[in-house]
Design a protein around this nucleic acid. Structure first.
Lengths: 168, 168
DNA sequence: CTTAACCGGTTGCGATTTGCAACTGGTTGA
DNA sequence: TCAACCAGTTGCAAATCGCAACCGGTTAAG
């Protein structure tokens, strides 16, 4: 993964930053799972990223300006990773990728419920979500609506439903 | 690049197919550059893909169902690659990725003019474009509007403008 | 008919990247 | 005091990438 510019095409430049198997996974967990610390990202991910890969991706994403790193005041050793505006602006990309994946790939219900809401909500919901992410990650004023809460609640409801069904 | 399912998340599953530096480049050239043959994809790409990588990606994309391969009746050795509906459905993903890249990365004017039109045109233009791609790649009836033509014309106008400016 | 250009790849090889597991030095809370 | 937790680092084998040279067959021009 070198950083030599292959061309000035927006798709190409985007792929030079995000075109691998892990970068968007890390961003997804920060964005939709509110994972902000190394250990959270390492252990609470369904895909099981290796610690050296995670360290490398975080460093690279900081370098490229998609996330930022700061000390967590509550713990001398904790680092707090935050999305920047550049990272937050990926919401529509995630929405479209999620919609595409949901349509063509063998997704599981509980892991695709967020993608479904994001797709159904459209640009208005994306904007609300980005506004909330700016509050969470950039210290902007917190908006009235919590899209994050809605997505999380829907996810948890789906998990609960599965557990109930399994118990019967 | 193994194909073991890491999770049923739509983002993850999408990345397992498209999460590398070349797959989307190949699809971009087929979609926006109308490259349909191996040699075209190999030589007419700004990024300069290697032939073994191209062969591997084409094989993989066929396997995954994003493109199809057929004999070109005009030449016994030519293969004709076509987008499937699954590939055509990536138009909104490209649009959003292009918009993001254009906003945050050092794109060149002539290579981002298509992304600009795609962004400004919105879902209505994407639908028209997908309809046209279905005509080109799947033999569907050709729609009245040619978004492909519009994108191509805008690109060529930008190139021409640059040449004129350079001549002055 | 000859021949050069073109066709879709394949092969070999060194360099890079990945994935795994064990480990490090320091911090915190019980 | 000590176990759990913190953000990574290190070493190593396997897979992948990127480059360049090459292949047998086909086509079009002379």
């Amino acid at each position: 993964m070198k950083d030599a510019r292959r061309s000035g095409c927006p798709i190409n430049l985007t792929l030079e930053i995000l075109g691998d198997r892990w970068s968007l996974i890390v961003l997804r967990d920060m964005m939709f799972g509110n994972r902000r610390h190394f250990r959270e990202l390492l252990t609470k991910s369904d895909e099981g990223i290796a610690s050296n890969i995670l360290a490398d991706r975080l460093r690279r994403l900081v370098e490229e300006g998609l996330i930022s790193k700061a000390d967590d005041p509550s713990h001398k050793q904790k680092s707090l990773y935050s999305l920047t505006e550049m990272g937050i602006a990926l919401v529509p990309v995630f929405a479209m990728m999620g919609a595409w994946g949901r349509r063509f790939l063998p997704v599981t219900e509980e892991l695709s419920i967020r993608a479904e809401l994001l797709e159904d909500g459209g640009p208005a919901l994306w904007d609300d979500f980005m506004e909330e992410l700016r509050a969470i990650h950039l210290g902007a004023p917190r908006p009235a609506r919590s899209v994050f809460g809605e997505l999380q609640a829907a996810y948890e409801a789906t998990v609960a439903r599965r557990l109930t069904a399994a118990a019967c």
